[in-house]
């Protein structure tokens, strides 16, 4: 699965996307966040407060408990501040 990062999340992680072969027991966005947080410091820091993050699955906004089955891209970013 491709994971893309935007704004402050992208800066903290230090890259704009990753591609992962996720283990079969990773089923929801929350599972992915937990998996990424265990990787190394930048991921842990960027994802430390999932409540303050927003997610999209294949370009549609989604909640943390949403299933990632048949999803090709997860986007992770902070609450938006346009206008």
């Amino acid at each position: 699965m491709k994971v893309t990062y935007f704004a402050k999340t992208r800066e903290l992680i230090g890259r704009d996307s990753d591609s992962f072969d996720l283990p079969a027991d990773i089923r929801s966005i929350n599972d992915v966040i937990e998996y990424l947080s265990a990787m190394d410091e930048p991921y842990k820091n960027a994802l430390a407060n999932p409540e303050a993050l927003r997610f999209a699955l294949d370009n549609e906004m989604a909640k943390g408990d949403a299933s990632i089955q048949n999803i090709s891209e997860l986007a992770i970013f902070p609450p938006v501040t346009g206008g």
């Binding site: 935007f6 704004a7 402050k8 999209a56 970013f77 902070p78 609450p79 938006v80 501040t81 346009g82 206008g83």
Partner: peptide, 10 residues
């Protein structure tokens, strides 16, 4: 727009 549109300002 301020809450629903993916845009971020620095």
């Amino acid at each position: 727009l301020k809450t629903d549109v993916p845009l971020w300002k620095k």
